[in-house]
Amino acid sequence: MLNPPTIAAPKTDKDDPRLGGWLRSEVENPKVVIIGFPSDEGVRRNGGRVGAAQAPDEIRKALYHMTPDAEETKLFTQLLEHAMDIGNVQVKGELADDQEALADITASYVEQGTIPIILGGGHETAYGHFLGYAKAELETAIFNLDAHTDVRPLKDGKPHSGSPFRQALKYPDGWAESYLVAGLQPHVVAKAHVEFIQKEGGSVLFRDETNITSISGFFHQHSSDRLMVTFDMDVVDQSQAPGVSAPCTNGLPVDLWLTAAYLAGRNEQVTSFDLSEFNPKYDRDGQTAKLAALTIWHFLLGLSQR
């Protein structure tokens, strides 16, 4: 069901340690686990440009070479002692089945209180991520940082990268308690989709409403016991994130994006995280890969300070 990472840990010494030296495939009492979901079949179905399936190991290449935080080294390394990277889900191209496979793995960790960090893949990753909660029979709120609502109907009855949150909100038994999406670009969002979210009890924040105050307020004010967080890289301005499935003109600045990842890590209610829509095929000098890895680094930094 899982393929081990193909990225070798960098050679380091005690004076220059790197994250790849800590991220083993098995540890006792894990607090955090990295899982790759190399799928972009949902992007293809949604009419996007494919290539995100290559993302998980490209993110690892950059992440493994990063160091623990130089200012909070002790806390960061204490977390890394209980972190592992178990590799990639063996996707087969049948998206619904692949999402079920991701869900089975995710459920096993959220049940025991380990925090999964899922490296997508297209944003179809988010539905497999959510299904993990449904399989574990755990209610969760959902926070999505994204230029798009991703609540489109299925296409010919099939899921895709634009449908995960409609699927979650309509899932039987109501495991999705609420849905907030921030960073929306008003010129690529249908009014009907906004109304659907609001009808389902969710909330939206458009690009100009999305700032540290609004994001921090949500992380500290929502009433759910659990919060599933999903970051879609297409919300970042394309000058800073050219390698994505759907580049964004006038997207969010990098400092806001990274601070949001840190705040998610710090928040006690956040029980899982995924990063989606990085597309190495269209990257420039590894710029987006490094940003994706730095996003995971900031989330880990926040986790280490809980």
Rank of each mutant, 00 (worst) to 15 (best):
K31H: 10
D57V: 05
V43E: 00
L256F: 12
Q90S: 15
D15W: 05
N88K: 07
I115Q: 06
N88I: 04
S224A: 15
E94D: 14
T114F: 02
K74A: 15
A264D: 01
S163H: 06
L95V: 03
K74W: 11
D150R: 06
A136S: 03
L138E: 12
T271H: 07
G51Y: 05
S276M: 15
G87W: 08
D15F: 11
K61M: 04
H193S: 11
G36K: 04
L256V: 07
T149E: 05
K92C: 10
E137D: 13
P153I: 06
T67I: 04
E195A: 13
G20F: 01
D237I: 07
C248A: 13
D98K: 01
D97F: 14
L80M: 06
K92T: 15
A101H: 06
I117T: 07
L102D: 01
P247G: 05
A9E: 08
N250Q: 12
A107D: 05
E100C: 07
L23F: 08
P56L: 02
S178H: 01
M228P: 08
V270D: 06
G183E: 07
Q54Y: 13
L205F: 14
T259I: 09
I296H: 02
A70N: 03
A261Q: 07
K92V: 12
G120D: 00
A126W: 01
G174T: 06
G51A: 10
G251S: 08
T77F: 08
T114R: 04
E81A: 15
L294H: 15
P247E: 02
I197S: 08
D13W: 02
Q198W: 09
V50C: 02
D156A: 12
E177A: 11
G302P: 03
G21E: 08
R45C: 02
R44E: 12
V229G: 08
I142D: 01
W175Q: 05
Y64H: 12
K135S: 03
R44M: 11
E81P: 05
I115C: 02
Y64T: 12
P38N: 04
Y64N: 11
S108A: 07
F206P: 01
P17W: 08
L145Q: 03
H129E: 00
P247R: 02
E200Q: 15
D16I: 00
Q221Y: 10
L138M: 15
M233R: 12
A107M: 02
A182N: 11
V194Q: 14
G157C: 10
R166G: 11
H129F: 04
P30T: 03
L291G: 06
D69W: 04
K281E: 15
K191S: 14
T125I: 09
N267R: 12
L291R: 08
A126V: 09
Q198E: 15
D225N: 09
V27K: 08
W22H: 01
N250C: 05
R44I: 14
T288R: 09
D173A: 14
A70T: 07
D237C: 07
L301S: 00
S161W: 13
S304D: 10
G87K: 01
W22V: 00
